[in-house]
């Protein structure tokens, strides 16, 4: 049962990633693309977590944690650059 739920979740997350990709390609403003990238990172974390449950291994959690940190930092750096013109003043 858990395997079936994981397979359904794989499909759902793939559909979510495709919708994020549509927003990333479509825009129109640069901040829409930043938001789409941020959501894509969260969906990728979800995919990594479901893969960990599907294969029954805890090996992937460090990858999910690193994804979370890099995604947050890149989004904040993007916004800071758009707000102030540089990242570290």
């Amino acid at each position: 049962m858990i395997e079936t739920a994981c397979l359904i979740a794989f499909g759902a997350i793939a559909a979510a990633l495709l919708m994020n990709l549509y927003r990333l390609a479509r825009g129109p403003a640069v901040l829409d693309r930043v938001l789409a990238l941020d959501t894509m990172v969260i969906n990728a974390i979800a995919l990594v977590v479901v893969v960990g449950v599907f294969f029954g291994t805890g090996l992937y959690f460090e990858a999910a944690l690193l994804f979370a940190m890099v995604g947050f930092l890149s989004t904040v750096a993007f916004c800071k650059y758009l707000l102030r013109g540089n990242v570290i003043e």
């Binding site: 739920a5 979740a9 997350i13 979510a16 919708m19 789409a36 959501t39 969260i42 979800a46």
Partner: peptide, 17 residues
Amino acid sequence: LILIGAFFLVVGSFGLA
């Protein structure tokens, strides 16, 4: 819980699109 999580991820991304 896995299905609920997947559902809300799709809802969030659908709203974004």
